[in-house]
Design a protein around this nucleic acid. Structure first.
Lengths: 203, 203
DNA sequence: TCTTTTTTAGCACAGATGTTTCATCATTCA
DNA sequence: TGAATGATGAAACATCTGTGCTAAAAAAGA
């Protein structure tokens, strides 16, 4: 087995520990135990804990954004529908990759939030957080651009401002769906996102 | 000095440690040191760390929501403006209490996020998180109700759905303003909130 | 086969944490 | 004044953490 694959395997163990017990419990010993490895083995692939955490952070971010980028290219390379509802539906497909709509994406969202919060005070994680922000901004920005180019967008809104608001909606929905799944179901989240996009289009 | 005041003083030390070093560093010793007390003193007011954390969580939540509720009652007891912009301005005054627009509210928002995330896996904090959700929902719900009663609200939206979307906007803005203050300034956050409320009203 | 490199495993140390226990000082009240 | 209660301080314990170090085991290459 490749060494890089081994590192991703350890990162997966990090995700499982974080999802189940929070990032505070993601110690080298707990991660190693979860991965079925010895402490020495994990330390053989990662110089120290900071390196492991930053690596896991970047792996998680990339998984989310690569999936969204795939959907985005499908959107950009297909003809823009002139019907509002169809356009919304196509944009929703992209943005839904950023929402915790199933167990897998929910786990990713939890890990993402824990890392983002940890990056606020944790030095090495801050660079990774910056990259994550840029990636999210790029995806959402390009979706807004598609809406704009369709000519269906309402009024004369500043695209940057609408992207900002859309990112806020996405982040807020993620937070609520992750922290209060009982109050904010997947269906509710989807519906709210769709309604928001619909409200951006002219009546 | 009263015993309850002493407990709030310790809670303030908890907030300072969380804001500066994250909740992971909010140990009894760090908190005691920050409060200028001995470890034994802190333990004299709180049976164990879990009790201290839950107490601090509730104090933080109440400070935020009590402030917002004060503004809310001012709104509800004043005549509803028939002008859209004035109505938006009055609602913004209430909801801005939930956004990290100055250092004090920013600190509260950081602490709030850290506790909410910790409550996901931490048993004793979950009840406090539930109460926090209810309180936020009540404030936002009553603001939406005011918008509805003004008769200026656009279309025939389900109030509950719009409240859900508004909460998402507020949560998302808080997250971004706290974690990336360089990219999301206080002015931007205010503007985004105002723009969102404006979009809820008929054209 | 022997040799080299990779991987796994284990021990030990220093530091931090929650908690228990006990002792000292201060304040209040009778 | 004396006693009782509140508050503070410190020592010790068991546990967990990251990390340094060493050595065995396994795999790969010559």
């Amino acid at each position: 087995m490749n060494a890089d694959d081994r590192r991703e395997l350890v990162a997966d163990a990090v995700f499982e520990v974080i999802q189940g017990q929070g990032i505070a419990q993601a110690s080298l010993r707990n991660v190693a135990s979860r991965a079925g490895l010895a402490l020495g083995s994990v330390r053989h692939y990662f110089e120290n804990q900071a390196e492991l955490m930053e690596f896991a952070f970047r792996v998680n971010s990339e998984r989310i954004h690569l999936r969204a980028l795939d959907r985005l290219e499908e959107l950009e390379q297909s003809p823009l529908p002139q019907d509002g509802s169809e356009l919304v539906a196509k944009c929703v497909v992209v943005l839904e990759e950023l929402l915790p709509l199933d167990p897998q994406r929910s786990a990713e969202a939890v890990v993402h939030m824990e890392f983002m919060l940890a990056a606020r005070t944790g030095g090495a994680l801050q660079d990774a957080a910056q990259d994550d922000y840029r990636a999210t901004g790029a995806v959402v920005g390009r979706v807004v651009l598609q809406l704009l180019e369709s000519g269906l967008m309402a009024g004369s809104p500043e695209p940057v401002d609408e992207a900002e608001r859309l990112i806020a909606v996405l982040d807020g929905l993620s937070v609520r769906m992750v922290l209060q799944p009982g109050w904010s179901s997947a269906e509710q989240g989807q519906a709210t996102l769709r309604r928001h996009l619909q409200s951006l289009l002219a009546p």
